[in-house]
């Protein structure tokens, strides 16, 4: 629409912006939505852009779940309990429970949680002692060349392979590498240390031990090179309770 005043044929003057002012007629003479409606449309479109992904992730799955057919029979549909079938089920359950119970060792066993650094000692299927311990630090020590050691406590089912009193620690190579010292020959006297493993040790195989520690303030933290450390009192009870051959579950 032109901004200049023009003389209409019928002689009536209209302001040039009349169409826009009224919000009814645009330059092309078409119907124009009011400003609030335009604003509302654009807000709705902006909202659509925003909710698109959350809709696909949350709303669509939630809506679809409403269409899951219910499977539970209603009370009206259910017949009375069939005594024979109930007794068959009950005896099957009893037999299964017995079978599963047989898996749990009747004698003493130890469970070690390496994440929380806690242990639980069981005897006759009852918990007799629990407490803090220290397990592997998950440090990967990289030495010269390809030499590499990962200090983690192995997980799984183990057996007590031997019990030792007043154990002597034979320092492995990593103990020297970790201290920045040269590695001595296999049977060098500098490899042997007394009194650092506590009064008792239980061997689990592959050099892993359950033993005592001088660093009792670290109990409950993952600080060891793979062995399981306990305080003196706990170690004594574990040593006295677990016979050779007893199971140790580490997870």
């Amino acid at each position: 629409m032109s901004n200049q005043h023009s003389e209409p044929a019928n002689g009536i003057h209209l302001p040039p912006e009349a169409g826009n002012t009224l919000g009814l007629v645009d330059t092309a003479g078409e119907h124009t939505p009011p400003r609030w409606r335009k604003w509302l449309t654009r807000t709705a479109i902006a909202a659509l852009y925003l909710v698109f992904l959350p809709f696909l992730l949350v709303t669509a799955p939630a809506v679809s779940e409403l269409f899951v057919p219910r499977g539970l029979p209603s009370h009206k549909m259910v017949a009375d309990a069939h005594p024979k079938r109930v007794s068959q089920l009950t005896s099957a359950i009893t037999a299964l429970e017995k079978k599963i119970e047989r898996f749990t060792p009747g004698n003493a066993f130890l469970v070690v949680n390496t994440t929380e650094n806690k242990f639980s000692l069981y005897r006759n299927r009852k918990l007799v002692r629990e407490g803090l311990c220290s397990t592997g630090s998950y440090i990967s020590l990289e030495g010269e060349g390809d030499k590499k050691w990962i200090f983690k406590t192995p997980r799984g089912e183990f057996k007590v392979r031997g019990k030792i009193t007043d154990p002597v620690w034979r320092k492995p190579d990593w103990a020297f590498v970790e201290e920045g010292l040269p590695i001595p020959p296999a049977n060098a006297p500098s490899r042997y240390e007394r009194g650092v493993l506590g009064e008792y040790a239980l061997a689990l195989g592959d050099g892993y031990l359950i033993h005592g520690t001088l660093y009792q303030r670290f109990l409950g933290l993952p600080v060891t090179h793979g062995c399981i450390r306990m305080n003196d009192a706990d170690l004594k009870e574990v040593y006295e309770t677990l016979p050779v051959g007893a199971k140790v579950f580490i997870y």
Partner: peptide, 19 residues
């Protein structure tokens, strides 16, 4: 599917879980 009583239903769940 529909002739099970609620008691049997419960026992069946226990049995399945134990298995």
């Amino acid at each position: 599917t529909v002739t099970w009583s609620l008691e049997e239903w419960q026992l069946l769940r226990d049995k399945s879980f134990l298995e």
